[in-house]
Nucleic acid binder design. Structure first.
Lengths: 191, 191
DNA sequence: TATTACAGAATGAACGTTCATTCTGCGTAA
DNA sequence: TTACGCAGAATGAACGTTCATTCTGTAATA
C-alpha cells in the first residue's frame, strides 16, 4: 500500500538539507518541498521530526558498518586491521560528504550524546569492531595502555578532523595523504 | 551611563546557556532572565544575537590565548613547546567546561566555518603560535612532512575529542592521563 | 526639565504539527 | 466493458507556539 519511494524521497531530502544546513536549517516544510510531497505526508511515514532524524541516523550507521566490514579479516594483525578500517572510514566520509556531515551534526547534538551514553554503558555487541580491535590490541600489548575512550580519541580525532577539513575544502585528501594520515594516527596509538 | 556590569552579566548568561543548550536552546528572553535584565536591554549592548555570539567568541579566544602564552618559551625545543601548549589547552578546557562547550558549539556551526575560512586564507599573525610552531618543526625536520591542516588534525583532533569526553563524563582525565594523551598525540606528529 | 537607561509588553515571522478535504486506484456490480 | 463505491494515501491551509526584535512607558540622572 505505502509506496516506499516516497519514504525514500523524504529521507534523501532530509539528509541533504540537514547535512548542509543543520537540523534548524531544515524545516519540515522545506524537506517536504525538496522531496516533492506535501508537508503532511511526512507524518504518514514518521511520527515526528525526532523520529525522522533518528531513523535516518540508523540507516547511515548501517551503511557505514557494511562498508567497514567489506574485506575485513579478523585474523590479520592489529595494525593491519586498524589501517584497513581507518582507510575505509576516511574514504567513505570523503566520497559521501552528505552522510559524513549528517553524522557529525547528529553527534554534535543532544541526540548524539544520548546515543553515545547508551552505547558506552552497554555491552560490546557484534557491531563494535573498533572496541574489539582495541581490546585485542591492549591484550597483545601492541597499543598503548590507555582507557578505551582515549584510544578512540587518538584514533578517530584526527580522522574526523581531517575528513571535515577535506569536505570544507581546507585540504585535498588524495590516496597518498589518506595513507599518511592513518599511518600517523597509528603512531599515536601504538606502544 | 552604560554600566559595564550589565554587559558582563549578559555575556556570562549567554555563555552559560549556549554552552549547555546550544544556540537554539538559548533564546534572548532566557538570556535576559538569567542576566537579570529586560529582554530589550540586551539590544542596547549588542546589535543583535549574531553580534552577541561573535563578540562572546572573541572574548573567549582572547582568554584562551592568554592562558596558552603563560610560561611559553619560544626558545625551547619544538617537542617541549608542543607539550606545554597541549597541556595548557587541555587543562583550560577541562577546568572551564563552559568555555570549551561554547567554543565547540561555535566551531560546529556556520559561524565557525566562516571564521576558519578567513583564518586559513589569511597571513599567520602574531597570535598563530601553533602555526608558527609547526612550521618551525617542519623546517627542523622533527615533525612529519604533511600539510599544516593535517598536522593540526593530528594534534588537536585527539585533544578536543578527549576534552569533550571528559566533560560529558565518559572518562576522568587526571594529570597523568593528560600527560599520556598529549605524549601520544606527539607520537602521531613526530617524524 | 531634558535625556538616557531600562523593563517588559507587543509584534510579526517562522516553525512543527494537525486535520478536514481531495485524490487515486482497486474491487464489485450491472 | 463501464460505472460506481470506497479505503486509505496525500495534501496544504490553519493552528498554536516560540523566537528575535521593536515599541512604549517609566524611572533615574543630569
Amino acid at each position: 500500500m505505502v509506496k516506499p519511494d516516497k519514504r525514500d524521497e523524504i529521507v534523501r531530502a532530509a539528509l541533504e538539507l540537514i547535512a548542509e544546513n543543520g537540523f534548524h536549517g531544515a524545516p519540515m516544510a522545506m524537506i517536504a518541498d525538496k522531496a516533492g510531497v506535501g508537508a503532511g505526508t511526512i507524518y504518514r511515514y514518521f511520527e515526528n521530526k525526532d523520529v525522522l532524524i533518528n531513523e535516518l541516523y540508523r540507516e547511515l550507521e548501517q551503511r557505514l558498518y557494511a562498508v567497514l566490514m567489506g574485506g575485513y579479516s579478523p585474523e590479520k594483525p592489529v595494525r593491519e586491521r586498524f589501517i584497513h578500517l581507518g582507510t575505509a572510514i576516511l574514504r567513505y566520509c570523503i566520497t559521501n560528504p552528505l552522510d559524513f556531515r549528517y553524522l557529525e551534526q547528529f553527534h554534535n547534538s543532544p541526540y548524539g550524546v544520548v546515543h553515545r551514553r547508551d552505547k558506552i554503558s552497554g555491552e560490546a555487541d557484534e557491531k563494535d569492531i573498533y572496541r574489539k580491535l582495541f581490546e585485542e590490541g591492549l591484550a597483545k600489548k601492541v597499543i598503548k595502555d590507555l582507557p578505551l575512550v582515549v584510544l578512540f580519541a587518538l584514533a578517530f580525532g584526527p580522522l574526523i578532523t581531517v575528513a571535515r577539513d577535506h569536505i570544507l575544502g581546507f585540504v585535498v585528501l588524495d590516496e597518498a595523504l589518506i595513507g599518511q594520515t592513518i599511518a600517523a594516527s597509528w603512531d599515536g596509538l601504538k606502544r
